[in-house]
């Protein structure tokens, strides 16, 4: 059997390399965020959150995620219903188009809206006449967030619903259930963990997006700054404690996301095994 396993020293070396690599690349940044945030004590840490601009940034982040996540959730459900339950030409193309935002650099995702709604853009002059602003205003931030988080729910649901087929839904329909009843009583329970999984990832990205939002926001303090953008401003002003304090909230969100993700993953595996 000795030939089927590595010698003990190789094993220990590889485990050591793994611990060192993950420790320095993943754990160290996390530790740094919290240490730097608490550098001047708990009072200074907490004071960072009573600042009005920080509160406004938190509110805008919650607003953007609060719109983008439900909207993309509805989109994901609608798209996966159409794609998984019906046959139609161009389906493969539609699936790839849904994944498109993942392939596009965040900066470009923001830029496309500047080119549509910006002053020099397609609709810029029309909007300016009516004194409406999308770029360098809250709607731009929300739109950019919707763009980058569009695929998350759909890409979790589509493969799962395709695999599940349509027998159960057809049975429900034959027994007289309406479309909505079929969806709510049959489809939704079958995909609930995948849906939750998609929502968790979608939310993490919505609250953490930086590049796309940065391009459209205009960085107006207290008005168009999300938490990640506020971090950048504080950091560039050498206000490190406050920057890391806001960052620590997002780091906590990331940790909660990872924990929730592994719980849901375990549930999905259990359900698959059944």
């Amino acid at each position: 059997m000795g030939r089927l396993a590595e010698p003990r020293w190789v094993r220990n070396l590889l485990i050591g390399v793994t611990l060192l690599f993950l420790g320095s690349f993943l754990l160290l940044p996390l530790v740094v965020v919290f240490t730097e945030a608490l550098r001047n004590g708990l009072a200074a840490y907490l004071a960072s959150f009573s600042e009005p601009d920080a509160l406004a940034a938190i509110r805008l982040t919650l607003l953007a995620a609060g719109i983008a996540v439900p909207v993309n959730c509805v989109f994901g459900l609608a798209a996966s219903w159409a794609i998984a339950k019906f046959e139609f030409p161009g389906k493969a193309v539609l699936i790839s188009l849904i994944d498109l935002p993942f392939a596009i650099s965040p900066v470009i995702s923001g830029m496309v809206y500047v080119l549509v709604f910006g002053l020099q853009g397609w609709l810029g002059p029309w909007l300016a006449e009516r004194e409406m602003r999308i770029i360098f205003a809250v709607p731009g931030v929300v739109l950019a967030t919707m763009f980058v988080t569009l695929p998350y729910v759909a890409r979790e649901l589509i493969p799962l619903m395709q695999e599940q087929g349509i027998e159960e839904e057809e049975a429900a329909a034959v027994l007289g259930a309406s479309g909505w009843q079929t969806f709510r009583r049959v489809t939704l329970p079958n995909v609930k963990w995948a849906l939750l999984y998609g929502v968790i990832l979608c939310n993490a990205r919505a609250m953490g997006e930086f590049g796309a939002v940065s391009v459209v926001s205009g960085h107006i303090r207290g008005l168009t700054n999300t938490m990640p953008l506020h971090i950048e401003i504080l950091y560039n002003e050498y206000n490190f404690v406050a920057a890391f304090a806001v960052a620590s909230l997002l780091a906590l969100l990331a940790l909660v996301t990872l924990a929730a993700k592994s719980v849901v993953e375990r549930r999905m595996r259990q359900e698959e095994a059944q």
Binding site: A204, G208, F210, A243, A251, A254, L258
Partner: peptide, 16 residues
């Protein structure tokens, strides 16, 4: 924790 770079906002990893 392998997925941390996916979950951690890029601005946070940037300053860290």
């Amino acid at each position: 924790i392998i997925d941390l770079p996916f979950a951690l906002p890029t601005a946070v990893s940037g300053i860290a």
